[in-house]
Design a binder for these strands. Sequence first.
DNA 1: CTGTTAGCGCGTTCAC
DNA 2: GTGAACGCGCTAACAG
Lengths: 346, 346
Amino acid sequence: MSENSSDRPQDPQQPTMADVARRAGVSKMTVSRALRHNGAVSAETRRNIHAAIEELGYVLDQSAGSLSSKRTGFVAAIVPSINNSNFSDTARGITDALEDTGLQLLLGYTDYAIEREEKLVEAMLRRRPEGVILTGGSHTPRTRKLLSSAGIPVVETWDVPSDPIDQVVGFSNEDAMALLVRKLAEKGYRRFGYIGGTTERDTRGSQRRTGFQRVLNELGLPADRLISFGAPPISIEQGGQAVVSMLARWPDTDVVICVSDLSAFGALMECRRRGLRVPEDVAIAGFGNFEVAAYSHPRITTVDVECYEIGRRAAVRLRDAILGQRDPSLGSIELIRIRVVERESA
Amino acid sequence: MSENSSDRPQDPQQPTMADVARRAGVSKMTVSRALRHNGAVSAETRRNIHAAIEELGYVLDQSAGSLSSKRTGFVAAIVPSINNSNFSDTARGITDALEDTGLQLLLGYTDYAIEREEKLVEAMLRRRPEGVILTGGSHTPRTRKLLSSAGIPVVETWDVPSDPIDQVVGFSNEDAMALLVRKLAEKGYRRFGYIGGTTERDTRGSQRRTGFQRVLNELGLPADRLISFGAPPISIEQGGQAVVSMLARWPDTDVVICVSDLSAFGALMECRRRGLRVPEDVAIAGFGNFEVAAYSHPRITTVDVECYEIGRRAAVRLRDAILGQRDPSLGSIELIRIRVVERESA
DNA sequence: CTGTTAGCGCGTTCAC
DNA sequence: GTGAACGCGCTAACAG
């Protein structure tokens, strides 16, 4: 199977549609029709053609087809990280919604850098995707320009940008975090700490921190117990290290809120390891409703953001826009339901 | 940006290379050369061309280019699940190794079904990838046939198949599990239990179970404490439920080995919730060295399999085969280092 | 260093 | 229901 030399076991040349046509005794065009679902071809001809295809091991060359049909069948999606279960849930939602549409997903990850996003968008655009799904609402000017002159539908997700490129399926990270903080304040917590990554790159993370500070200011509570630790996405390990710093600096902290469940889990485990009771000695809350938060001991209080639905709905919107079936009664901005999940840790 | 109607703000038509050429006062071919890295074009011409590209917002159409160059720049990779951090680490290893090679990743997931793998392989082959990375060594006959007549390099990963399609980067799941069981037997454990998914689909899971049984048989220890629970990949939640069944049925079980760290974590947390001490009352071990296993409390004993390296090396092999730089001193099978990571849980 | 010609493998369009 | 001519946007091969 390797490229080198001529010892290849099979076809020196991939068969083309012309080979199939010759073998089936028809024209290329008839083969093309037999391969498309709407093709008007007689039953017998179709049978002959499929037999020829099997014998030759022919596989349609879609890139050639898309050159003349002007439809590549690609959809591009760009996520910050593929190793974060929130975003891989979104990716799964996209793939599932695209199933049976003939649209294929081209996935890329930015590692939380909008400069990398720009490069990726350009690389994807060279493949002429029929639509693009982006994570977040912050992009470089050039990204916006590239996308806008591509003339294809775009869906921004995981955020509600003030100046959307096209469509949006997301939620306000600031409001979602505010909801959590308010709920915890109602439960009686007063000395709040916040753990997040160094915020330059992770826009969603800094929006959450803003929500945290906003509510505490509104409630007249101190909002200065902030620990920034490590490059986003902040890991389980870093969550553990950050909570240690937090408690060293502000030992009487009531409740520690983490930018994501992963860091919350790290913080929780580190506290347990040090013999601290959660939530009695210190309460902990996270964000994102990762599976690990639902089954840790104690279970972690968090904010659920329906990651899979974000992906699924973004893909449905893209599909409808591509197929020209966009529902005009739907606005171009779709808000995802956010809810605080109260569990044992806070 | 949407498709409907003529209210599109910009270009009714995407600019082509001919438009750029006209604007820069050169031929298409010169534009094409200026866009390729090896192109021999004078500095001034190149400047003019890039200026024209910027003004028009032109983006190269790679699908058209690949039709004539016979190089699509695609590599296909197929994993069981994108939401499993082991496989997403592998995917990240692939992407990273492909960076700056001009090769782009086409990713698909099978949901642990080789029938879905077959469909995916065919869909990918329509895009004419220059190489394919597969997970596991079990495939349908048709998948093998399709791949073999495609005449492109193939790398199977996460397994060491007895009859490889082409190249292999993996390890024996059976041996890896055997290593863990033997190590735990050395530490004095005698009454072993095993938790895995229903095994029809997850080949790697059943290979691990085989390794478990093989060692216990060799050591003359009972190997009948098996709990199969839920469709693979068995989740954190299912790990918790399974350990409850295990201890209800065989209360004196020494150590519970789980098919993956996720289920081990679920089992661990469920035990703690029920007031059981780990490892004093029951020990727990996992497989895969997920991050959650390294930072839980107690930390989980597991088997490290270098997922990222599997992906990276598979991609390097593919890249070398595609570029015709395959190192002949390397065999076609590359074993990944496996090691037991002893921690607190067992 | 640059231009010309030809053609990649298919689908569109029109003919029959 | 089927076929022929043409062209999609680009690059290979050669010429200058």
